[in-house]
Write a protein that binds this DNA or RNA. Sequence first.
DNA 1: GCGACAG
DNA 2: ATCTTGTCGC
Length: 235
Amino acid sequence: MAPPSHPWNLSPSEAIALQKELAARVICRGTPENVKTVAGVDVSFGGEMARAAAVVLGFPDLEVTDHAVVTRPVTFPYIPGLFTFREGPVAVAAIEQLAKRPDLIIFDGQGLAHPRRLGIASHMGLLLDLPTIGCAKTRLCGTFDPPGPEKGSWSPLIHRGEVIGAAVRTRTNVRPVFVSPGHLLDLPSAIRFVLACCRKYRLPETTRQADHVAGGGGIRDPSAGPRTPSGRPRP
DNA sequence: GCGACAG
DNA sequence: ATCTTGTCGC
């Protein structure tokens, strides 16, 4: 079936109805074969503008090979459960600017681990018809037992009796991240790819590189010059 | 009704 | 997300 296409200028209630329809088309099974490139996507805000960055890394070497940045006006408020309608439009634009479509994309947010099973990773996977993974810094819904303290250990994230994702320890003795399949792969695969993208930090390199390019810490005026911790010029 | 609530 | 300095710990 053809990848779905739809307008973004919806009201919150219309957006919720759309999520329920699209969720039925998400496929959380299988494992992507021959993955040679993995992309990371992240969006930062400044005033009324949203800036998305898509960065492509080689897999499994994780060397950056391409990136694209797109800035647009914000058109939707932040509402837990609906933030795809805030970050999705500009995120898609950035991904479409890449020279080549990546083999897999990791988003900074949930995938299946969403109240209606359609976090940004699942939604984007459907629209782009690409394998996607949701890797969030915090939980949106579901309950879980703390995973073991060592890097690599994880515990299932459960919601309404279903396993929707996992709390994964990407670094020893560091808060876990929340991984869930977005589209076209299962949970075990999602966990393996996220761990394979982690080096010496809690977040996968894909997300870190995208955050870096998007302007982690907010969109600021370049002509404002560098700022020091004290806000005072460096001696 | 009350608390929770991706970024 | 963004605003924002110093600080406790491995």
